[in-house]
Write a protein that binds this DNA or RNA. Structure first.
Lengths: 148, 148
DNA sequence: TTAAGTGCAAATATTTTGCTGTCAC
DNA sequence: GTGACAGCAAAATATTTGCACTTAA
């Protein structure tokens, strides 16, 4: 079940308001797009969808808003093994980190949650003396339907 | 000990020759740069270093060669959390996958090998039915010197 | 009111491609 | 000799920035 939504819609707005960050028509549209997305979107796709809500939105506003959300840890940035160009993909940061699996043949993206991943992060924090802010595990391979 | 070199220099050449891929002056220079690199290099840095060995080398030759090496699984492509621009970084693929830790404050890159990472990959292969070709775990955080 | 945010246009950065000539095998 | 590869220039793609105008708080 990818993108299992266990969060309250509008959470971003509340979070940003709390930090005294201004809410604009444009940001509302962009947040809406990201919060309701059923798949990973790149900046161009976010722009196109946000424009359906507010046609005046500019590309640079999308990038500036993505930067804002990234800085506040509300979204994660993914590459998805660059299956399709060099763009980045964005998703709401959920409570639990998950692994992204990209099938190199069919392009399907699968998400996977694992306790082992959590243990690995703990090990890194302990043994490397790191405080982890963001952990991104992306795997390229062949899914059960595509592997030979 | 990052980049512990357990491989024979010139391995790339042998590997490519075996597959009937032509060896040119330019490729030799690029391979040399990558094989002897002590840190992660992006395409521009590889170009600059390769030009010291063969000044005529073009940027596109570097990209085409990187593509070739990637397709043959000789190098890995990294983002290193995009600490510095959007370029990709390259490194020789070693026998053992390792995790890349990027300090968000000082920019230092640390490498870490973990059995837990290997177990996690096995779990993914088993439970997701994937055959993994490449696994990239990149962590952004604060190293022991930088964390508050 | 006013600092933060926006659109617009132009710049930057990175990577890819078409074409023609060259070279490894 | 010939097909793979190279350089060159131009395009494509992705993202950032300067600036003047607008707007949320």
């Amino acid at each position: 079940m990818p993108f299992a939504n266990t969060e309250i819609p509008g959470k971003f707005q509340a979070f940003l308001a709390q930090r005294g960050i201004r809410m604009t028509e444009q940001r509302r549209a962009i947040l809406n797009v990201i919060e309701t997305a059923k798949k990973h979107l790149d900046a161009g796709q976010i722009l196109r969808r946000a424009r359906k809500l507010d046609p005046s939105i500019d590309r640079s506003t999308v990038y500036r808003t993505l930067g804002l959300l990234k800085r506040h840890g509300l979204i994660d940035e993914l590459d998805l093994m660059h299956l399709d160009g060099e763009a980045h993909y964005y998703e709401r940061k959920l409570n639990r980190d998950h692994i992204h699996l990209a099938c190199l043949r069919c392009g399907r993206i699968t998400e996977f949650v694992s306790d082992l991943f959590e243990s690995l992060k703990e090990q890194v924090e302990k043994e490397c003396g790191y405080r982890i802010a963001v952990a991104r595990l992306e795997i390229g391979g062949y899914c059960s339907k595509c592997r030979t």
